[in-house]
């Protein structure tokens, strides 16, 4: 079935909340219904029809042609189906998503994949800060699924990560994997200061680690079956991550300033 295509007519003059345009919310709606959905975040009303040219198709798959950093919350709460954004997007794409596939072909803002619990989020460009992280006051960040950033990610990527896998193929900003509860974070490029800051459990794999905090302790070089298995499972998604995991890895345990059952791996 052909996807529902939404082509951006012009740069919006205010930030827009695109959360209502998730596949499960559009099910059974006609083009006319979709065009009437309001997206504004100010007092000036803007509907989908005002800002997008709509080409009808199945609502299980939605395609945004043209992007803007003012398009926020794309794919928020989505639980199935597919969304492809052929351009940039604003903050929180894929926030709270629990299933389906969300692909951002351009860059995106802060809190991409925030608190997602399932499904797959791929960002072909760069991601802002707090990738997969919780919003203020929330206890947990990402709790499941797969999050891949082909470009770079900002600071605090994987903050409060609980479950699931994050792969950053470019570089990561400062404090990647801060306060991690569990889960897996892989960074293939450079990495900012203090990875795994106050992490409790979980696994961070760094291709190019900075100097680790003294609260991470050396556990030696190992060839672990789990790394080979993850290498195999990740190969279809990221060949570079698969390669990194197939090498002998040095294990540092930490953060001993927190629970200390986490680990940072890097190539020997």
């Amino acid at each position: 079935m052909k996807p529902l295509v939404l082509t951006l007519k012009h740069e919006p003059n205010q930030r827009l909340d695109l959360a209502p345009l998730a596949p499960h919310l559009l099910e059974g709606k006609s083009v006319k219904d979709v065009a009437a959905i309001e997206l504004q975040t100010t007092r000036e009303t803007i509907t989908v029809g005002d800002i997008f040219k709509i080409r009808s198709g199945g609502t299980g798959s939605i395609r945004f042609e043209g992007g803007s950093v003012r398009l926020d919350n794309i794919g928020q709460n989505m639980n199935a189906g597919e969304i492809v954004i052929e351009g940039d997007c604003g903050k929180s794409p894929g926030r709270n998503m629990s299933g389906g596939n969300l692909v951002a072909m351009g860059d995106c803002g802060h809190f991409a994949g925030s608190a997602m619990s399932g499904g797959r989020l791929e960002i072909a460009g760069d991601a802002g800060g707090f990738l997969g992280a919780p919003l203020e006051g929330e206890m947990e960040g990402m709790t499941g699924g797969l999050l891949i950033v082909r470009g770079n990610a900002g600071a605090r990527a994987g903050d409060r990560l609980r479950r699931g896998t994050i792969v950053i193929e470019g570089s990561a900003g400062d404090f990647p994997g801060s306060r991690m509860i569990a889960g897996t974070l892989i960074v293939l490029g450079e990495c900012g200061c203090l990875p795994g800051y106050l992490m409790r459990r979980g696994t961070i794999v760094l291709a190019d680690p900075p100097e680790l905090a003294p609260t991470f302790v050396d556990c030696g070089e190992h060839d672990l079956a789990f790394a080979s298995v993850f290498s195999g499972l990740l190969r279809p998604e990221s060949r570079a991550a698969a390669r990194l995991l197939s090498r002998p890895l040095i294990r540092f345990a930490g953060d001993m300033a927190a629970l200390g059952k986490g680990e940072i791996f890097f190539p020997a």
């Binding site: 479950r163 699931g164 459990r201 696994t203 499972l233 990740l234 059952k261």
Partner: peptide, 9 residues
């Protein structure tokens, strides 16, 4: 207590 749970998909 040192056992580690790992999930993928």
């Amino acid at each position: 207590g040192w056992q580690v749970s790992k999930k993928f998909g």
